[in-house]
Amino acid sequence: MQPRFRNWHVQLALLPAWLIVVFAYLGTMVFTVRMSFTSSKGIPIMDDVGLRQYDRLFHTDRWTISVENILIFGLLFILGCLVLGFLLAVFVDRLARFENTLRTIFLYPLAMSFVVTGLVWQWILNPALGLQANVRNWGWTSFTFDWLEQGDRAIYLVAFAGIWQSCGLVMAIMLAGLRGVDQELWKAARIDGIPTWRIYLHIIIPALAPMFITATLLLATAVVRSYDIVVAMTAGGPGISSEVPAKFVIDFLFTRQNIGLATAAATVMLITVLVVLMPWLYLQYFRSAPGARRAA
């Protein structure tokens, strides 16, 4: 028996947490998967229609569009936040003054919820109300910026708003990492006459690997559950061109009254997340545990 299981009083104290995990998380997860094999409409029923809901799901344009969008959004959002967050962190780190002010400014968007972010950017980007209308009022009457109105562009604006909100968080994480870098490293590199950009690229960034992993993980969870920013900014539109999987699930669960199809979509999301994350988490935190913890 492993030593930690011998501390029964510790386990007892953890009992509520265990109950929550088993019933609230695992229990509902199992229930969701079970529902996806039923023909449930507005109210859950327990029949068995096999894979019919999955068959329909993968023949539904809206689902295909949602999946494409989450890939575009996820890739842009994570990469954008990482790159921009890192650059901001370097910028703040190298400044002699105003560090506190700038740090606050960059972190400020994070204090807002995705709903507020989405709404504000919707107003700014709305051609009839925001940027375009204002520039035209100033005299440049042919100025056009109506991506929010264009089905094939809207999702990029959503990604942009997401980056605007979340890159401050990445900056904070990276800044903490940069401060933790051993000064000896810098001295040694300078004595060898290595240019600054190469020090960042080849020494600092590898040293910050755990920071990048943490940030990516945080951002990835935001991608999977992305719902509110889309609802507030585009409501999935124009048409259905900026729909995302989580919104698909919620809409079919309630307004469309098709629990079977909604839970099938939720199950596909769950499986995708597991398939993507599991090997990666395993590699990062379990197999190479001693190595991965070296820099942390």
């Binding site: 509902t28 969701t32 559950r225 669960l253 839970t263 939720a266 997340v273």
Partner: peptide, 8 residues
Amino acid sequence: FLSLGLIG
């Protein structure tokens, strides 16, 4: 938010 599986 959608919390995965939190139907009930």
